[in-house]
Amino acid sequence: MLEGKLEQASLFKKVVEAVRELVQDCNFDCTENGLALQAMDTSHVSLVSLLLTADGFSEYRCDRNLALGINLVSLTKILRCGNNEDILTLEAGDSADSLVVRFENTQQDRMSEYALKLMDIDQEHLGIPETEYAASITMPSTEFQRICRDMQSISESITIDCTKGGVKFTCEGDIGSGSVTLKPNSSADKPELCTKIDLSEPVSLTLSTKYLLNFCKATGLSQQVTLKLADENPILVEYPLSAGHLRFYLAPKLDE
């Protein structure tokens, strides 16, 4: 049986909001370590990997591993019945055919309970190989979102070039081209505004603007985002959570 209590429903609401356009049906794998989700988008170009560790819940109990098959459109409908500040409890029995979602307001004088029907989902699981990334860029998530937004109207692709001196985002389309360069910077007062580059060798990757912009739906979950790049390999876009992470992988565009 699973029982997980989150002090603020907003975390779970934001996580589901962030992935529901990429993924429709998926299994939430519940173990004693927490809740995990791994799913590819329908065109098999990107992968979402979510981990909410048990210590991020104010109460967590999972006696037996469970795979909860969930339609995220339906889950969204139910999560919208609760307020961001509500305490959220997720509950499912070992052979349950539904997930119980409970909301309790902070004054503890309003409780609501919804049941979401579960589905049987035969989902392929992918092995994510250990990758030696050539570059790791940590930057404000709002800055990454702004770049992707600005460039979406110019080109279907964004090229990310990373050197020790900085990271350059370039786009080229029918109407013209554009680039944004960010140099590493640090501010002790506002570490969330820093840009940090760890580089073992210069690297360049071209990626779909549409997918990168989709990942930016997670912006509200974390002030910083980390991009990890290796030549001719999928990019890893990671939003750290207070207990866990939301990761997106996207296969690159390569010359024919």
């Binding site: 590819m40 170009v45 699981h125 992918l126 092995g127 296969a251 565009k253 390569l254 010359d255």
Partner: peptide, 14 residues
């Protein structure tokens, strides 16, 4: 011309 790769060519199915 650049072509979008699929993820399965990098990440094996378990």
């Amino acid at each position: 011309i650049q072509k979008q790769r699929r993820l399965l060519s990098y990440f094996p199915e378990i």
